[in-house]
């Protein structure tokens, strides 16, 4: 479904991605783990067209998307829950959800999706008229995920959705990730520092170090891999 071929991306003169190859198949949850500064967020931003790759190819459903603008890429069915949540602070919860559905105009099914989201995260229903910036970190993360879902993406990119959240909320977020994948058959590309949880929910995983993919395997194999356990699972 998504394929990155030898993708190289830069910030000015700084090369952040040094030739990345990643494949994601339809219906999969794949996770990308790696230390701070490895280039995980840059990989997602390259897919979304925010940091367009300087060379290499990105294919979605077999079509090249590198070189398209971010809004075009969203319209193909790729949504992102970005690092740091990036809730629109002065828009209400409802308006934030509405923005997620910006490219849709099917009023009725948007309404249904909002009901579905309020079932998923009842707290958001309670806060519906509150400004996004006034929500707690965990609530903002739920809203960020919900906003991305409002686009009805075929591919959902998530950048460290568990960062800074209490263990119970983290657990809930990972449950939701699995649920979204199973119920809607949404393909998920999950970037995580929380390698243990991520590998438990994912089918396959990639490991990144300083701009390169250094390992890829099934999630189960990575979980039991000696090197991974030492470096990323703290065991």
């Amino acid at each position: 479904m998504l394929e990155l071929r030898n993708v190289k991306s830069y910030y000015g003169n700084i090369q952040a991605l040094k030739g990345i190859d990643i494949r994601v198949s339809e219906g999969e949850i794949i996770t990308l783990i790696g230390a701070n500064g490895a280039g995980k967020s840059t990989t997602l931003m390259s897919v979304c067209g925010v940091v367009p790759p300087r060379s290499g190819e990105i294919l979605f459903m077999g079509e090249p998307i590198h070189g398209m603008s971010p809004n075009q890429i969203v319209s193909l069915g790729i949504s992102q829950v970005p690092e740091g949540r990036r809730i629109f602070p002065y828009l209400t919860v409802m308006e934030n959800l509405d923005m997620g559905a910006f490219l849709r105009n099917d009023r009725v099914s948007i309404r249904e999706d909002i009901d579905y989201i309020f079932e998923l995260f009842p707290i958001l229903a309670e806060r519906r008229n509150q400004a996004g910036g006034t929500l707690s970190g965990g609530e903002q993360q739920m809203l960020a995920i919900s906003r991305a879902l409002m686009a009805r993406p075929r591919l959902l990119l998530m950048d460290e959705p568990s960062l800074g959240l209490a263990p119970l909320v983290v657990k809930r977020i990972f449950e939701i990730i699995r649920k979204i994948n199973e119920e809607n058959n949404t393909t998920i590309f999950l970037v995580e520092q929380n390698a243990n949880q991520a590998l438990k929910v994912a089918h396959r995983g990639y490991v990144m170090e300083t701009g390169r993919v250094t390992m890829s395997d099934t999630a189960d194999n990575l979980l039991t891999n000696e090197g991974i356990r030492k470096a990323y699972l703290g065991m």
């Binding site: 971010p70 970005p82 990036r86 629109f88 602070p89 828009l91």
Partner: peptide
């Protein structure tokens, strides 16, 4: 309004 608040996020919602 969304663009004024966060340009990058605005582009990420399309």
């Amino acid at each position: 309004r969304a663009t004024a608040q966060d340009k990058m996020m605005a582009s990420l919602v399309g």
